[in-house]
Amino acid sequence: MIEPGFLLDLLLCLGLLGIAGSAVLSRGQFRATVLFMVFGLLMALTWARLQAPDLALAEAAIGAGLTGALLLNACKATYTRRQAGEAASQDDAPGTVFRLVAAGLSILLAAGLAWLMYSLTVADGPAAAMARSEGESHFLGNPVTVVLLDFRAYDTLLEMAVLLLALIGVHILIRHYRLPDLHPPAPVSPPMLTPLLTVATPLMLMAGLYLFWAGSQSPGGAFQSGALLAALGVLYRLTGRLVPTGTASPGLRLILVIGLALFSLFACAALIWSSAPLQYPETAAYSLVLLIEFALTLSIAATLLMLFSGSLGLARGQTS
């Protein structure tokens, strides 16, 4: 007898492998990109199956959504370029012998890793046991949020620095290098778009706020919420409601750094009331977490949106 749950898992795994395989081995870039976005959606389902709803939300919003939008952007540029001239050259493609050796090694690697991964423990390790016992009485209800904003808050803080660095890197490209004028089509405005956005805006704002608010007790949090808000911004950018500008206004710069800044200030200020950085005070810890998480949400949303926008700043555009 095969249980229906297992059948679903089996289908999901076959789907993941098939889609990932055809994505990375396909010829066209556009095709690969679309397949990769489907892969992201299947991963979101997988996380849900594996009792990781926080990851399912993050994967759907960031992994499939924003990465997909970024990839499509890059593909569009490449496609316009290819139209002008030559087909993709295969001059520097590796030879058959190399491919065969790589394939053989990869199969061996897959077999070895599969055996190793399966054989590893399923019981709690020392860190997991501590996280579980300490997490039970924690003032934050969602165990994942507890780890992200308390036990391993330092990782979360540094990860915000990674996000900011990616944006600074993009700023260098914008300021010091040139993109050819691709004659972008005027922002599309299908007839149903305006009413759709009118409905979508409050819904997505509400969902974003809900994710932020709920994150302390149930699945969700700054990342999921920030990614959703960024997606709303991407919609506005694509429809010309936000237009790129050549400077980052002070307000935008403030939003970009506010999360990391508040988090870092708290990390240092903790030395006033305790002997360890990043330690929450006895009182008002919950409000402090909410404040930091709100600032993180804003910074994440703004950074992801600006990474997509490919411009230094954004301004309100003409709406019809």
Binding site: L50, Q51, A52, D54, L55, A58, E59, I62, G63, D124, A127, A128, A131, R132, G135, P143, V144, V146, V147, L148, F151, R152, D155, T156, E159, V162, L163, F223, I300
Partner: peptide
């Protein structure tokens, strides 16, 4: 489930 790997993966996704 163990929350530590979930948090690590969330961090990993953002990176």
């Amino acid at each position: 489930v163990d929350a530590i790997p979930q948090a690590m993966v969330l961090t990993g996704i953002v990176i």
